[in-house]
Design a protein around this nucleic acid. Structure first.
Lengths: 230, 230
DNA sequence: CGGTGATTTGATTTTTCTCAATCCGGGTGG
DNA sequence: CCACCCGGATTGAGAAAAATCAAATCACCG
């Protein structure tokens, strides 16, 4: 069962208010290490509830109602980093598939980190990787056009799924066009059109949510040559 | 003298390859605490070199030459977080003003963190705040139009300058229109036009790099109502 | 006082958004 | 079993936003 690593201190209507850490059977993060030093609370979650496994989306919202998907996380991802600023709510995590999570108290986790250097390192490394990935997406969203953004997302999904032991070229999108658009800073229609164009070029094959990457190098080449200069 | 907190492990042509921490006299970060536990190397830097004080810009670049400003940091900001992933280069830091920095070795810093809980907490809190701010910008860039993005940036500058003891309404931009555009995901001409529009509306007064915020509430109201729905 | 880089402004093109209609598949209830 | 329904996806046409190309202006510096 796919699981997700999540760290939170609080959330609007999803997580209990007390600081806690939600964690799973990660790839990027060494869960064995974690389980040895921080007693987890295992919890099964249904799709539609908050935080779980397989695939989740993180969203951020502003007071005036604007909302944006900030990322799609798969098993092994570290979530809720931002919540370390005590008491500050930053984003929600919503399950896109059924799955399972483990839950930890943040304070206990930090204490364990202090005791166990290896855990500290694992935590630091995972966190750094997340920040790195986020920065990379900022670059993508800031410099590439719609078609290129979609191409980048599909390649990213492929890469991450492959790391989890699945096919990098054939997969099913677990989110709607609107969610993809929110993440990429595009309208859902623009996402659809971009996918259609990629299909027309023979780079991918789209059938609603079923994706078949036919020419990964072609997609990469598409991204390599930016349409905008910024 | 304004200074900047920076944490790095490596960089392209700027910082020495060995893991190190660059840090200054911060507001957000408790430097006193840090100085007590991690011996700093003081270093004066000239504008045009990497990492310094007063104001710096962080940039990220991809292999194909795309580049984007990921943020403008003032005294007290924590830089180079992402570099904690050992050996990974993520961004460059370029000085926009003359100033001063202090430099620490990353390993020594982490050791100090382990010994001193207060330092650990300060580090964690600062880091979380940085991530939080970054997320907030992602939302802004993903949901607002050009004029609103510029308004948000000006308000942000004002807020941060005020926290450092300067005027929140009158200040001089230290960066070019192109750099602003890169950060906001806009062309420099679009930035100029947005500023002109804000001026025409009477919300601000622009004179090249001199900014006078005449109606901060008006700017905030402008941002409150999104132009795009995403 | 000319030169250079930055900024501003204008005209035009491109991209993306917006609005609207249609299509498609899965699920439901008769 | 089938007609219907509904959310999501697709497609089309027109409007709006921003990029692009081009030119003029400005400030500063040697």
């Amino acid at each position: 069962m796919a699981t997700v690593t999540a760290l939170r201190t609080s959330a609007t209507h999803s997580i209990t208010p007390k600081p806690q850490l939600l964690i799973g059977a990660p790839t990027a993060f060494d869960s064995t290490l974690l389980l040895q030093h921080v007693a987890p609370t295992r919890r099964r979650i249904r799709s539609g509830e908050f935080v779980h496994a397989g695939l989740v989306k993180s969203t951020i919202a502003s007071s005036d109602g604007r909302e944006k998907v900030t990322g799609f996380q798969m098993r092994g991802a570290l979530l809720g980093l931002e919540a370390m600023a005590a008491g500050t709510h930053v984003c929600d995590v919503v399950a896109l598939e059924d799955g399972e999570i483990w839950e930890f108290e943040f304070a206990r986790f930090m204490a364990a980190c202090a005791r166990v250097p290896a855990l500290q390192h694992a935590f630091t490394a995972t966190m750094a990787a997340e920040i790195l990935a986020e920065r990379s997406w900022m670059l993508t969203l800031g410099t590439l056009g719609a078609e290129q953004r979609v191409a980048a997302l599909l390649l990213d999904f492929g890469t991450r799924l492959e790391a989890l032991g699945f096919s990098a070229s054939r997969f099913v999108l677990r989110m709607t066009r609107a969610e993809i658009g929110s993440f990429l800073g595009l309208q859902l229609e623009t996402v659809t059109r971009a996918m259609t164009q990629l299909d027309d070029r023979g780079l991918i094959s789209v059938q609603r949510r079923e994706i078949d990457i036919r020419d990964a190098d072609g997609l990469r080449a598409l991204i390599g040559a930016p349409s905008r200069s910024h």
